[in-house]
Design a protein around this nucleic acid. Sequence first.
DNA 1: GTGGTCTAGACCACC
DNA 2: GTGGTCTAGACCACG
Lengths: 129, 129, 129, 129
Amino acid sequence: MFFHINPHNGLAIYDQIARQIKYAVAGGALRTGELVPSVRELARELAINPNTIARAYRQLQDDRVLRAVRGTGLQVATGATERCQDERRALIRDRLRTVLAEAKQSQLDPQEIRQLVEGELSALEREGV
Amino acid sequence: MFFHINPHNGLAIYDQIARQIKYAVAGGALRTGELVPSVRELARELAINPNTIARAYRQLQDDRVLRAVRGTGLQVATGATERCQDERRALIRDRLRTVLAEAKQSQLDPQEIRQLVEGELSALEREGV
Amino acid sequence: MFFHINPHNGLAIYDQIARQIKYAVAGGALRTGELVPSVRELARELAINPNTIARAYRQLQDDRVLRAVRGTGLQVATGATERCQDERRALIRDRLRTVLAEAKQSQLDPQEIRQLVEGELSALEREGV
Amino acid sequence: MFFHINPHNGLAIYDQIARQIKYAVAGGALRTGELVPSVRELARELAINPNTIARAYRQLQDDRVLRAVRGTGLQVATGATERCQDERRALIRDRLRTVLAEAKQSQLDPQEIRQLVEGELSALEREGV
DNA sequence: GTGGTCTAGACCACC
DNA sequence: GTGGTCTAGACCACG
């Protein structure tokens, strides 16, 4: 279980942790029923205040991504994979729409935008393959 | 001179003001040499504390968008139009790139992304015309 | 951590604080990663309003001398030492050039200027040793 | 009578005017007994508020550089040439001393300072000849 | 009238 | 505990 935490990027640390766990769940790195590291263990590993880890885990329980199993720990909830994927895709669609609207408002040439998109997509396809 | 301020959308008020002025400068609504509303006047108009306006204006001076003329007011600096346009476009390109990279990582179908982009662009073109 | 603040010498207090911190960073008294005194602590120590300290620290963050670590404090940024040294030296070279140009314009004898410079330098060398 | 006024360099306009008149007096461009332009005339010429010109002239009278002649205007006072030259030289000596002290404090190599001084002086000598 | 600075005191999110 | 933001009200120099 590896996370990259950057205390300087303006995002709250608990939020970075929650996002990365959701990301791991959406990507299949964490599967339904699997246990996440304990608060103490993860806190030690990342050299971060346990309260901050606990807060991330609490938020993930609120979002039904994790589920407490008494005396055992926190496991990935059933249906969490799909929920995380859906959430992630909805989020991305939303941001894409926002950025495109702003690009248009800033009078970026639509043709320029298409080129930018195509350039990014083909670059990513090359990397991805 | 119209601004839309939303006091609790997470962005600081001084930042919303600064952004909107940069936007007005980039869009040509405010031209080089033109005076922006005085601190007190804008504060009155938006029902916001003058210190908050002053902070926005101070930040804009640091960014060389505004320049103080002692005893007279704050005017749009020379070259500010270009700087604001460049900044805005660079920002949008950057965000577009980030969103596309994440879309790809989340295994959104590239074809789906293209459709999303085309849909947004044509919708915006319709509005724009 | 000692600062000398003179509230009415024409320089703004927040500027005096920022300068002295830059000076401490350039001189190695404050090293990369080290935490500066908290806003409240320094405010108490100097008997100055915390907002004024905060403004100095905000400016130092804009200048990439300090960087915020959320919930922890403000630390000296990486590369700040070099940046502060460079800035300080560039500033001094500039002022030296200006003063010499004015001295020449005022028909101060170049020989007199050389003597003045030598006198100052040797006096400073004596003190320094 | 030509002045260069820069409303953006942070110096007060009345101060720029006063300095430039002192400079003209020190350099012999304005001689004892000569009349300076009237407040209104200079205000019109520089497109500056007459109050600002008046304030500059008031300061120059306080410094015994100008002297009011009833019904006539303001003339350069007797002894003003010497006083302006002395003031200017003293000011420059003082600033030179300050800059050198700071240069030393910033651990600029004394040898580097000498070179800087020599470079400036010879450059100025070339221009001056 | 203008902007610039400072103080005092409040509330917030985060660690 | 930390920094960040905002409000309220004061005083200053300048034009």
